[in-house]
Amino acid sequence: MRYWLFKSEPSVWSWDDQVAKGRAGEEWDGVRNYQARNFMREMEPGDRGFFYHSQSEKAVVGIVEISAAAHPDSTTDDDRWDCVDIRAVRALDAPVTLGAIKARDDLSEMILVRNSRLSVQPVTEAEWQAICAMGGVDP
């Protein structure tokens, strides 16, 4: 299993929106960055990811699961763009803020810290374990 992080502006697509989609989940569509798209092409069903509220909140708020491998993004006719489907697994007991992540030396190399603009990114197993613990969730 691999781990990922998905960033979304809560005013556009929030954790509550994701949860409302239930078991069916939703396409993670609209990504128009080649690096983020390539990461989605690496994902497999069953992989887990953090759901991160960007902009004002700047916090990991939940855990999602990849429910469908990369496929053409339904929001465009341009065949360069793929997406995956994700479904909510659970909210963190306590949101983990970007500030809290940056305060830890063991998370200083995390892509979220080094490249804050990338909307879809990999997370190492050690980073996954640390953030789950910070959020009060058993990894």
Rank of each mutant, 00 (worst) to 15 (best):
M1S: 10
M1V: 10
M1L: 12
M1K: 13
F6D: 00
K7S: 04
E9Q: 06
V12D: 12
V12M: 06
V12N: 06
W13G: 00
S14Y: 01
D17V: 04
V19N: 02
K21M: 15
G22P: 12
R23M: 10
A24M: 10
A24D: 15
E26T: 13
E27C: 07
E27R: 05
W28V: 03
W28G: 04
D29T: 09
G30P: 01
R32P: 07
N33V: 05
N33W: 05
Q35K: 13
Q35S: 09
Q35V: 13
R37L: 04
R37Y: 00
N38W: 06
N38H: 11
N38K: 08
F39I: 14
M40A: 07
M43G: 06
M43H: 08
E44D: 12
P45H: 08
G46Y: 08
R48A: 07
F50C: 02
F51I: 12
F51A: 06
F51E: 09
Y52H: 11
H53Y: 06
S54N: 07
Q55A: 10
Q55L: 10
S56I: 10
E57C: 08
A59N: 08
A59P: 02
V61G: 00
V61A: 03
G62T: 06
I63V: 15
V64C: 15
E65N: 00
E65Q: 15
S67H: 02
S67G: 11
A69H: 05
A70T: 07
A70M: 09
A70P: 07
H71S: 10
D73I: 05
S74R: 12
D77H: 13
D78K: 11
D78R: 09
D79P: 14
D79E: 15
R80C: 12
W81D: 08
W81Q: 09
D82F: 15
D82G: 11
C83P: 02
V84K: 04
V84A: 11
V84H: 08
D85P: 00
I86T: 04
I86K: 02
R87A: 13
A88W: 00
V89D: 07
V89G: 07
L92M: 14
D93K: 15
D93R: 15
A94M: 11
A94F: 05
P95I: 04
P95H: 10
V96Q: 05
V96F: 05
T97R: 14
L98Q: 09
G99M: 06
G99Q: 08
G99I: 08
A100K: 14
I101L: 03
I101S: 03
I101G: 04
K102M: 13
A103Q: 05
A103W: 02
R104H: 11
D106T: 12
S108T: 11
S108E: 11
S108P: 03
E109Y: 05
M110Q: 03
M110E: 00
V113D: 03
N115F: 11
N115M: 09
N115C: 05
L118T: 11
V120P: 00
V120E: 00
V120K: 01
Q121T: 14
Q121E: 13
Q121F: 08
Q121H: 10
P122T: 15
P122A: 09
E125T: 09
E125N: 06
A126L: 06
E127W: 06
W128Y: 07
W128T: 07
Q129I: 14
Q129R: 14
Q129L: 13
Q129E: 15
A130Y: 02
G136F: 04
G136N: 08
V137H: 03
P139M: 09
